[in-house]
Amino acid sequence: MALLEVKNLSISFGGLKAVDNFNIGIEKGQLYGLIGPNGAGKTTVFNLLTGVYKPNAGSVELNGVNVTGRSTIEINKAGAARTFQNIRLFKELSVLDNVKAGLHNHYSYSTLEGIFRLPRYFKVEKEMDKKAMELLKVFGLDEECDYRASNLPYGKQRKLEIARALATEPKLLLLDEPAAGMNPNETAELMETIRFVRDQFDMTILLIEHDMKLVSGICEKLTVLNFGQVLCQGDTGSVLHNPEVIKAYLGE
């Protein structure tokens, strides 16, 4: 059974079908790419999968659970976490506190325990600090744990966003254009980071990306969207050499 099974997913905005009968199946542990020209509907698909939008039709199953139309928080708790094309960190908080923000699904104390600093508050905070530091060390950010997130270089902010997403302990990680704004050296490092995350965390990853070097280098399978519809699906090599895919990108 696929970890993510999407059938006939559709949504319209003002009469325009932004996504039309979208289907995808992603197996556990796969590194899967969703590509297509600008405006093809890729981010809309991510928004449907993570509860930002509610579909007009179709279904989404995550690890055998129907999460169609559920809220973002419910879908996150069911096991899906995402990053964004435009980095959305808590920029005035520390690097450590950004990761801790992702841990609250699994660590909690009551409002009274927090206000009066009761023993459970300190116990939970200590556990969260330990877990957050473990994640930061994986990404080489542990020595910058007290920095403001806004003071990190761009490439490290991308890593921090991934670390925060992983703090929610997802089964499926959705990366929205993770290489956007990166130079070639940062992109090469990001490729290694994504592979490491998949292997180290036994993670299933779905990513949107325009950098074809990154896509061809790490994605095992691809789905190509064009005008909200699936144009092509299959192994990365065959999809990237498909004449219809080349035509869609070059506009010829």
Rank of each mutant, 00 (worst) to 15 (best):
L190F: 11
L152C: 13
F90M: 15
K77P: 03
G15A: 10
D202Y: 06
E161V: 15
N23T: 04
Y147N: 12
Q200I: 07
E92F: 15
L172D: 09
T43N: 14
I162H: 07
G33N: 13
V45E: 09
A132D: 02
E161P: 15
K126G: 05
I26W: 02
M128C: 07
E127P: 05
E134S: 13
T44L: 13
D142Y: 01
L174H: 06
G41C: 05
K159I: 02
E5F: 09
V230K: 01
L48A: 05
A248F: 05
Y121P: 06
Y154Q: 12
G36M: 12
G114D: 01
E5D: 13
N47L: 09
M1I: 01
E27K: 13
E220R: 10
N242G: 08
A188F: 11
I11C: 08
F122L: 00
K126T: 01
L89P: 13
Y32Q: 12
F201A: 08
M1F: 06
A180H: 04
G64K: 11
L174Q: 06
V124Q: 04
L225G: 01
E74H: 04
Y109M: 07
F122S: 05
L103C: 12
N86A: 14
A149M: 00
L118R: 14
Y107D: 11
L135P: 06
N63E: 05
G36S: 13
A40V: 04
L152F: 01
F196N: 02
N56L: 02
E125D: 04
G25Y: 14
T193H: 00
V224P: 11
R195E: 08
G33V: 14
K100D: 10
E161L: 11
E252R: 14
P243S: 08
M182Q: 03
G114R: 09
L222M: 06
F139T: 00
M133K: 15
I87Q: 06
K54L: 00
A57L: 07
V60T: 01
T204F: 02
E143Q: 07
V124G: 09
H104C: 08
M128F: 03
Y53K: 03
T223A: 07
K221D: 14
M191Q: 07
R82S: 13
V45G: 09
S94V: 07
V60I: 04
I205K: 11
P119Y: 00
L31H: 11
L173C: 01
Q30V: 08
C145G: 02
G15L: 12
N47Q: 04
S12L: 07
N63F: 08
A248T: 01
T68E: 11
V6N: 10
D211I: 12
K123V: 00
E144N: 05
R117G: 12
V239W: 00
G39N: 08
L222C: 10
R117N: 12
Y109S: 14
G15R: 02
D146L: 12
G217K: 10
L240W: 08
N98L: 12
V239K: 02
R158K: 15
A165V: 06
E127V: 13
R70Y: 06
E186N: 06
S108C: 05
N185C: 03
G33H: 08
